[in-house]
Amino acid sequence: MSLLKVENVVAGYGEAMILNGVNLELEAGEIGVIVGPNGAGKSTTLKAIFGLLRVSSGRVMFDGQEITNRPTDSLSALRMAFVPQEHNVFKTLSVHENLEMGAYVRRDDVSGLLDRVYDIFPPLKDKRRQPAGELSGGQRQMVAVGRALMIDPKLILLDEPTAGLSPRYMSEIFDRILVVNASGVTVAMVEQNAKQALGIAHKGFVLAGGRNRFTDTGAALLADPDVAKSFLGG
């Protein structure tokens, strides 16, 4: 049984439909990457999955139940987490306080989860008392992902996790995503750095005009000359 299944989803803003029948399916333990040109509906797909945008038709299934248009807080309780591209940390709070905020829905001891996050993102441990707003862009992104991990998610949705980062931090974030996935978390990720993202993906979904243009393994999409010519810069 699939952990996440998006079936013929149509969604948009007002009367403007951005998604025109998007399909996506991930098994537990996979990394799925959504790529495509600007305006293709990549980030809109994540927002529709997480209930931040109303689905007009189609459905979203998660862990065996339909979650179409469910409130986002109920999805957190089902162990789905979302990391937006921007405004994803509390800048005046310390790194440690940011992580603790991620566990607001939990009523149990989260010390083990904190240790896990610091193990996945070692640079954060030395900066745990520093305000998140004083960190580099790459370190802030680590805080944002780390905070999402504090609900012990089955699935984490990442919207452009390497946007605006230096090549060094871009590579490090991709490496950390692999570690997150190896810890048992399924990942659905939108990325503009398509080649690097498809390089770590079990499955890739190329969107254009709010529809699936190509769907295959990450390796197969990287090797496809039509994908390379149209979406990967040759």
Rank of each mutant, 00 (worst) to 15 (best):
F214I: 09
M189G: 10
F174G: 06
A188G: 14
R168F: 08
R213S: 14
T217S: 14
A182G: 13
V227P: 07
N193W: 02
V187A: 11
D152T: 06
I151L: 03
L155I: 13
Y169Q: 13
L207S: 08
P167G: 02
F214P: 02
S183F: 10
R211V: 15
G204F: 05
A208L: 12
I177F: 11
A220H: 00
A208N: 15
R176N: 05
P161Q: 01
N181P: 12
V206G: 08
L207R: 03
H202K: 11
N193H: 11
P161Y: 03
F214E: 06
L222M: 07
P225M: 04
I173H: 00
A208V: 14
E172T: 04
N181W: 12
R213K: 15
A182K: 15
V180Q: 11
D224W: 05
E172H: 08
G210C: 09
R176Q: 12
T215W: 02
P161I: 07
R213M: 13
P153L: 10
T215K: 11
D152W: 04
T217I: 04
E160P: 02
M150R: 03
G184K: 10
T162Q: 00
A194V: 00
L157T: 05
K203W: 09
V185W: 11
M170N: 09
P161E: 01
L165G: 00
R147Q: 00
K154W: 06
G218F: 06
G218I: 08
S171Y: 04
K154I: 04
P161F: 02
A194Q: 04
V185E: 13
I173Q: 07
N193D: 08
G146P: 01
T215D: 11
D159K: 00
R147W: 03
V190W: 02
L165Q: 04
G210S: 09
L149S: 03
T186S: 15
K203M: 13
P167K: 01
H202D: 15
T186V: 14
L198G: 03
L222G: 02
L155V: 12
V187M: 11
A201N: 12
G184Y: 09
H202N: 14
E191P: 03
Q196W: 00
P161W: 05
I177P: 05
A219Y: 08
A223T: 01
I177M: 12
Y169K: 06
D175F: 01
A223M: 05
N193V: 09
A197M: 07
M170F: 05
D224I: 00
D226C: 04
V190Q: 06
A148D: 00
M189T: 13
V180I: 15
S166A: 13
S166H: 02
A208D: 15
Y169D: 15
D224M: 02
L158M: 04
L221S: 05
A197E: 07
A197I: 08
P167V: 01
L157W: 04
D216C: 06
L158A: 06
G204T: 07
V227G: 00
V179T: 15
A208R: 13
T217W: 09
R147L: 05
D226V: 11
A208Q: 14
T162K: 06
S183R: 14
S183G: 13
S183W: 10
K203L: 12
S183P: 07
